[in-house]
Design a protein around this nucleic acid. Structure first.
Length: 315
RNA sequence: GGGCAGUUACCAAAGUGGCCAACUGGGGCUGACUGUAACUCAGCUGUCUUUCGACUUCGGAGGUUCGAAUCCUUCACUGCCCA
């Protein structure tokens, strides 16, 4: 892990700054976020794609009522697992929110680990329509009935350009491209500009990470705590809705397997730990590509604060 | 003490004379990912090497053979059964 105190590569162009606090699950973002919120008297915007859901409290390690009352949070328990939501909508919602926040606060905090959602806010996403239920179901059905080969071929017909670029082995990606083609009547690739969208505020990314063994130990321990806090009960309430995408979530899907009799409770708990570790790894793979992140150890709160102070003073 | 079965890479487990550095699964590692993303997908996983390839492996030792994880002898350990 590199801890970089050199802020010279950060160039502030705007009066307002969005501090993005990111890192793998379980690394210790929440704690520091409170310190920063206090220090900069800034509200906290969550960029955790599962803490959005008010029903998923324990399994997503969402901030508790006490913390929520102490610090103004956005996008925590803001939606229901029955809602349909995605990164594109999130981008729009956050930008709108920031427009208002920056009128009162020069600094806002975005805290979380959902990679694509963070990128959506920082870099923007192309203007691609959300898929409606009818098209979604139709495509799902095509895939279920005819298999991967078939939807690959359909995509090839409707969007040869994207066909040559997508990971053809990845049904979700192929399916989504196909959905857009079918819904809009235009090739998916025609929407994909891949351009970074301009923002009228500075983005300062602070990454938190720990040595792998340390992180994994924390993740394992946290899962035990979640179980003690009643995760099984929380999950069991949503067992009838386990097919919902919002419930295809680490900490819940494994317990659904237990409820289905596919494994023992102990095995399910082990799986939650394993899946959490893997998620953390995937997060790091994504974050490692982003060279704009300044990395710190979560214990180094002082270092983070000094670094941010230093950067903000330069403005 | 006697009988039978077994010992394969991190784990499980195929392979029973050449196509075997060794199927497959798990785990692990690495990576991809612009909209269902805590999703989904891919590659690697004996050592050295960018590749070609080279080298060392299938409990230990010895042997048979042009050639052994595979056959023989023996030793060790494990499991089951009979005493």
């Amino acid at each position: 892990m590199t801890t970089n105190f050199d802020s010279s590569s950060f160039i502030a162009k705007y009066p307002d700054t969005l501090i993005v606090l990111l890192g793998p699950t379980g690394v210790g973002k929440t704690n520091i976020s409170f310190k920063l919120a206090e220090k900069f008297t800034s509200p906290i915007i969550s960029s955790d794609s599962r803490q959005f859901y008010k029903e998923l409290k324990i399994g997503t390690a969402a901030p508790g009522d006490e913390e929520l009352s102490l610090f103004k949070h956005y996008f925590v328990a803001s939606h229901s697992v029955f809602d349909v939501y995605n990164a594109g909508q999130y981008e729009q919602d956050v930008l709108k929110l920031l427009g208002g926040l920056f009128l009162k606060h020069p600094v806002a905090l975005l805290v979380g680990g959902s990679m694509m959602y963070i990128d959506a806010v920082c870099n923007g996403m192309d203007d691609i329509p959300s898929v409606n239920d009818e098209i979604r179901n139709r495509c799902q059905q095509l895939y279920a009935d005819n298999g991967l080969d078939y939807i690959q071929n359909e995509l090839k017909k409707l969007d040869p350009e994207h066909y040559s670029q997508v990971d053809l082995q990845n049904p979700k990606r192929v399916l989504h491209a196909l959905e857009i083609c079918m819904q809009t009547g235009k090739p998916y690739s025609s929407f994909r500009k891949g351009e970074r969208k301009p923002r009228n505020f500075n983005v300062l990314k602070i990454g938190l990470n720990r040595p792998r063994p340390e992180l994994y130990e924390r993740i394992n321990h946290r899962v035990d705590l979640m179980m003690e806090a009643g995760l099984l009960q929380e999950a069991s309430q949503f067992y009838p809705y386990k097919h919902l995408n919002t419930l295809n979530t680490v900490g819940y899907k494994e317990l659904f397997d237990y409820m289905d009799g596919k494994c023992s409770l102990d095995e399910a708990v082990q799986m939650i730990k394993q899946d959490s570790r893997r998620y953390a790894k995937r997060q790091m793979t994504w974050f490692n590509r982003d060279k704009d992140i300044f990395w710190f150890h979560p214990d180094d709160v002082g270092g983070v604060v000094r670094f941010i102070d230093n950067v903000l003073q330069k403005k």
